[in-house]
Write a protein that binds this DNA or RNA. Structure first.
Lengths: 106, 106
DNA sequence: CAGTATCCACGCCGATACTG
DNA sequence: CAGTATCGGCGTGGATACTG
């Protein structure tokens, strides 16, 4: 009979929530998948997000290997395109699962 | 051609993250499912959580219909038992999906 | 266009002491 | 045993002005 001792800091779920949780990441994931893949397009689609926060979220998601930041033109006016990695795309099934669950239990 | 405008405050994912996210809720869900269903047993299993936070999380999860708080003895020394609702149990498949995803993409 | 730089509010989470 | 009450740190998210 072993004792179960749990620390949330070492929970596998913590990684998932860090990568997809927060206020905006699941929305960003959804939008980029819909080819809303430019900084200004994302700003237009999320009228209540700030530039700082959008930049932050995109950078973190890049770090987590969910998306790639593609700089097409490096001088002003810059052109940057975002697209999902396979890892980022693979989240869709999980998100769809969550949506289905929501439909069923509400 | 319609314009897509998104506000995280009305996102279906926000509900899911509120119900299962945060630092402890997925752990609590897991533990109660393992019949670690008393306040003090949960405290023992999560040595780094505080009483206030555990109480908070349990109350929120009760509000969200994920678990039921069963007061067996209302006078000190009290006896309270927690158990999952069907809605709470149903989260297991989603959590398992997340764990599988994690195994595959790490 | 796609960001930085600052400053700031709020809420999550935690430590500790006390209680029916 | 199963909580409340109180105080406080810290991180997330936001408003606004500025820039290569």
């Amino acid at each position: 009979m072993e004792k179960i001792v749990y620390d949330a800091n070492f929970c596998i779920m913590t990684d998932f929530f860090r990568m997809t949780g927060g206020k905006w990441k699941s929305v960003i994931l959804y939008l980029i998948r819909k080819d809303i893949n430019r900084f200004s397009l994302l700003m237009d689609a999320m009228p209540t997000i700030s530039k700082k926060v959008l930049t932050q979220q995109l950078r973190e998601m890049e770090q987590d290997g969910l998306l790639i930041r593609d700089v097409l033109v490096a001088k002003a006016p810059m052109v940057v395109v975002y697209h999902l990695t396979d890892k980022g795309k693979s989240l869709r099934q999980l998100i769809d699962g969550i949506i289905e669950w929501n439909k069923h239990y509400f």
